[in-house]
Simulated scan of single mutants.
Amino acid sequence: MAWGEPTWKSTGNLYDLHSEHGMYIVNNGVPYPGADHIRFSVTAPGGNFQGCLHYPNDPNTDNFVGPVTLHSAVWGGEC
Rank of each mutant, 00 (worst) to 15 (best):
M1N: 12
A2T: 01
W3R: 14
G4Q: 03
G4M: 00
G4W: 00
G4R: 03
G4P: 06
E5F: 06
P6Y: 03
P6Q: 09
T7K: 00
W8G: 00
W8Y: 15
W8I: 10
W8D: 01
W8N: 01
K9Q: 13
T11F: 04
G12C: 11
G12Q: 08
G12S: 14
N13S: 04
D16I: 03
D16C: 00
D16N: 11
D16F: 11
D16P: 04
H18L: 02
H18M: 05
S19G: 04
E20G: 15
E20I: 06
E20H: 02
H21E: 10
H21D: 13
H21Q: 12
G22R: 11
G22L: 08
G22I: 12
I25P: 09
I25N: 12
V26I: 09
N27P: 05
G29T: 04
V30H: 10
P31F: 09
P31W: 02
P31N: 01
G34L: 06
G34W: 02
A35N: 12
A35V: 08
A35G: 02
D36L: 08
H37Y: 15
H37T: 02
H37S: 08
I38V: 13
R39V: 06
F40L: 06
F40G: 01
F40A: 05
V42M: 08
V42G: 05
T43L: 06
T43F: 01
A44C: 01
A44E: 02
P45T: 05
P45I: 11
G46E: 08
G47K: 00
G47T: 03
N48C: 04
F49V: 05
F49I: 03
F49E: 07
F49N: 03
Q50P: 11
Q50S: 15
Q50M: 15
L53V: 06
L53M: 02
L53C: 03
H54S: 10
H54A: 10
Y55K: 08
N57P: 02
D58W: 15
P59T: 01
P59M: 10
P59E: 09
P59Y: 09
P59C: 00
T61H: 13
D62F: 13
D62G: 07
D62A: 11
N63Q: 11
N63W: 14
N63H: 15
F64W: 14
F64N: 12
V65N: 06
V65F: 10
G66T: 03
G66S: 09
G66A: 01
V68C: 10
V68Y: 09
V68G: 14
V68T: 15
L70Y: 00
H71L: 12
H71N: 12
A73Q: 00
A73M: 07
A73D: 06
V74F: 05
V74A: 01
W75Q: 08
G77R: 14
G77V: 11
E78V: 06
E78T: 04
E78S: 11
